[in-house]
Computed example of a mutant assay.
Amino acid sequence: MADTSPLISTADLAARIGDPRLKIVDASWHLDARDGRTEFEAERIPGAVFFDLDAVSDHTTDLPHMLPTAAAFAGATGALGIAEKDTVVVYDSVGLFSAARVWWTFRLMGATDVRVLDGGLPQWRAEGRAVETGTPSVPTPATFTPSMRAGAIADLPSMLSALTGDAQILDARPPTRFRGEAAEPRPGLRSGHMPGALNVPFKSVLTERGGLRRGEDLAAVFRQAGVDMTRPLITSCGSGVTAAVLTLALAELGQYSRLYDGSWAEWGGRAETPVVVGA
C-alpha cells in the first residue's frame, strides 16, 4: 500500500486476501435496532474479525463509545490478532459509516497502516465476491503496542477555544438536527449547533453507492459548505461516529483535522455550553 489514500478498493483487498499481515476488521455499528455482531456472524468478508465499538470504549463515562484507554484498546485489539504494524482494512455493513470511526481509532492508537474499504460490505457483495458465513474462527492473539496520538482528539476545552476562532468546527449531523428542527435521537439533549459551526452532513461526502467522493468532487462539498482549508479544523457529530467520516474525507484530500470525541452527546447535554438554533 504505497499510496497515501486512507481508502482501499474492493479489488485491491481481494488481491491481498491470504496475506498473513493483512487483518480485516468488520466495524459495523448502528444507531437503530440492527446488531453489528449478529450481522457479522451471519455474513462477513473472509477472515474478518469483529470490532465492537461500544465494548471497546470508556465505560467510566455515560457518554456513548468514548475512546478507551490505550491499554484497553491494545488488549482488545491484540485479542483480535492484530498488531500495530499489521495492514488493517476496516469496513462496515452500510458502506461508509462506523468504519471511519474505527479507522480513526486505530490510527490514533498508533497503528501504522490502516485503510477503509471503499463501499464496504455492500460494494463487496455487489461485485459477487466471496463471503464467509457461520461461526467465525477464533483469531490467534497478537501483541498491539500502542502509541497514542492524543493531539488528534478535541475535548470540551478545545471546543470552547474554537468558539473564539481558534478552529473551524464541521458538524456532520443532518441539516434538520444541525438547525434544531429535529429532536436528537438521544434523550435529554438540546437541539441546535455550536456557535460558528458549519454543517457538512456526512452523507454529502458520499457517492450514491455509499463510497467516498474523490478529488474535486469531494473538495467541492467542503468549499460549498464554507470550509476554509487553511484554518485548523475540528469535526463533530452526534457521538463521534460520523464526524470520523468527515475526518476520513479530509484525510483523502490531504487535510489534517481533529475529532471532538464527546460531540453533541456531550455539548448538547451540558447546560453551560452555548447552542444556536436556526441556520
Results as ranks from 00 to 15, higher is better:
155 D>Y: 11
115 R>E: 08
51 F>G: 02
176 T>S: 15
194 M>Y: 00
48 A>G: 07
33 A>R: 15
178 F>H: 06
171 D>F: 12
266 E>P: 14
223 R>I: 04
174 P>V: 15
267 W>L: 08
256 Y>I: 12
182 A>I: 07
116 V>W: 10
15 A>G: 15
162 A>R: 01
61 T>H: 10
32 D>K: 02
56 V>M: 08
263 S>Y: 12
183 A>Y: 06
279 A>Q: 11
202 F>I: 10
190 R>T: 05
198 L>Q: 06
255 Q>T: 13
193 H>T: 03
52 D>V: 14
187 P>L: 07
3 D>A: 08
186 R>V: 02
127 E>P: 11
51 F>I: 12
90 V>H: 01
243 A>T: 07
203 K>P: 01
143 T>S: 04
195 P>K: 05
210 G>E: 14
243 A>F: 13
189 L>E: 08
48 A>L: 11
119 G>S: 01
222 F>T: 00
11 A>G: 06
191 S>A: 13
75 G>M: 11
248 L>E: 07
202 F>G: 09
95 G>R: 06
27 A>I: 10
199 N>L: 13
239 S>D: 09
122 P>T: 04
175 P>K: 12
275 V>N: 02
237 C>S: 05
251 A>Y: 05
125 R>C: 09
247 T>A: 15
138 V>F: 06
104 W>R: 00
33 A>G: 06
195 P>W: 11
24 I>W: 02
85 K>C: 04
23 K>W: 12
88 V>E: 03
160 L>P: 00
269 G>L: 00
196 G>Q: 06
17 I>V: 14
214 R>C: 07
167 A>H: 02
247 T>C: 09
68 P>E: 08
42 A>N: 07
266 E>T: 15
133 T>V: 14
231 R>K: 08
66 M>A: 08
89 V>L: 00
74 A>R: 01
74 A>W: 11
262 G>Y: 09
74 A>T: 04
129 R>A: 14
262 G>I: 14
145 T>L: 12
17 I>Q: 15
192 G>P: 06
160 L>C: 01
173 R>Y: 02
77 T>F: 15
253 L>Q: 05
38 T>Q: 15
90 V>I: 13
41 E>F: 09
201 P>R: 09
275 V>K: 03
76 A>E: 00
88 V>Q: 02
109 M>D: 01
231 R>E: 13
85 K>G: 02
265 A>F: 14
22 L>I: 07
218 L>G: 01
4 T>P: 00
31 L>M: 12
278 G>D: 11
273 T>S: 05
121 L>F: 14
33 A>C: 04
194 M>Q: 02
120 G>Q: 03
47 G>Q: 13
19 D>I: 10
278 G>M: 05
163 L>P: 00
